[in-house]
Write a protein that binds this DNA or RNA. Structure first.
Lengths: 153, 153
DNA sequence: CGGCATCCTGTATGATACTG
DNA sequence: CAGTATCATACAGGATGCCG
C-alpha cells in the first residue's frame, strides 16, 4: 500500500487553473467533449470542416471555435489547398503533437467500451495483422506495473 | 493514407449528448478537470476528503459533488471506517473500474509533460526496477501500429 | 474533519440565421 | 462548403457560510 505518488503532483496548491501538473495542463487544452471528439476524428483521418461537423454531431459554431483552439494549441494544422479547378479550401491535419495524443484518446475509448453504460463496444484493430489494439502501461524494461507500483520522480 | 476509421464512430449522429461512441461516453463521465484530477489522486492513493481538497486545489464543494458523481459512476467506492476512539469517517477507494482508467490518466499526463507549456516535467517510474513508465498502443501480437494502421471493427 | 447549501461568474454547447 | 454572429441554456467551478 505504499502509494508513492500521493500528493506530490500539487505542491503549490495555487488557486484555480494554475496547476502545473501535466495531467491538469492537458485537461486545460483538450479537456472538453468537443476537443476530444474532434481529435478522435482527426486521428481517424478527417480533415474537412464539414466532415468534422457531421461526424462529431457538434454544431458548426462549436466545431469552428474548437478547431481554432486546437490549431492554436498546436495539435492540428490548418493548411490551404486547392484541387485543380476548385476554389481554395482548408485541410486540418494532425501535427506530431496531436498524434501524440492517440494513446490518451484510445485509452479513453478503451475504458468507455468496457465500463460506460450504453457505449457501443467497438474494437480497434491493427490493420496489418488484424489483432485488437489496446493501450498498456509499461516501463522501458517491459514490465507492466500495477497502480501501486508506479512512483513519480 | 487509408484512414480506416474516418467517420464510423458516429453513425446515428443524434443531437446533443446522445453519442454512443465509447470515447464520448467516457468524456461524459470523467470529462471534467475536477473528475480527472480526483481520479489522479485516487490512483495515487489519496482516500480522504480533505486530502483530495488540498492535493487537487479544488474547492470542497466541487470535490464533494464530483466525488459523489464518481462514486455513483462506479469509479470510486465510499466506505465508512472508524479508527479506535475516533468518529466514523469515509474512505474513497478505487474500484476495478476506476483502476482501469489508469492508462488514460497516465496517457494524458504523458502528453502534457511533452507538449503542454508550463507543465512540470515529471517522470513516472516503475518502483521495482526504477525504469520510466509510459503508455503505449499495441496489438495483441505486440506490434506498435501508427495512427494510420488502426481500424475499427 | 467532512461535508452541504447558496450565490455568482465563466464557459461549453445547442439552435438558428446569415455570408462568401 | 466553410464558416461567422447571436441568443439561450446548462454546467463547472470559485467564494462564502453553516452544520454535525
Amino acid at each position: 500500500m505504499a502509494f508513492a505518488l500521493a500528493g506530490i503532483m500539487n505542491r503549490g496548491n495555487r488557486k484555480s487553473p494554475g496547476d502545473r501538473c501535466p495531467i491538469d495542463r492537458t485537461m486545460q487544452v483538450v479537456g472538453t467533449r468537443s476537443a476530444i471528439l474532434l481529435m478522435r476524428e482527426a486521428l481517424f483521418g478527417t480533415s474537412r470542416f464539414d466532415d468534422f461537423v457531421v461526424r462529431t454531431g457538434l454544431t458548426d459554431a462549436v466545431v469552428a471555435a474548437r478547431l481554432r483552439d486546437l490549431v492554436q494549441a498546436g495539435l492540428l494544422s490548418k493548411e490551404p489547398y486547392r484541387e485543380p479547378g476548385q476554389r481554395t479550401r482548408h485541410a486540418y491535419a494532425l501535427t506530431d503533437s496531436g498524434r501524440d495524443l492517440m494513446p490518451a484518446v484510445l485509452a479513453l475509448g478503451q475504458w468507455g467500451a468496457k465500463h460506460a453504460r450504453g457505449a457501443v463496444g467497438r474494437t480497434f484493430r491493427h490493420v496489418e495483422c488484424g489483432e485488437p489494439v489496446r493501450t498498456v502501461v509499461e516501463c522501458t524494461a517491459h514490465h507492466r506495473p500495477a497502480v501501486e507500483q508506479i512512483e513519480v520522480s
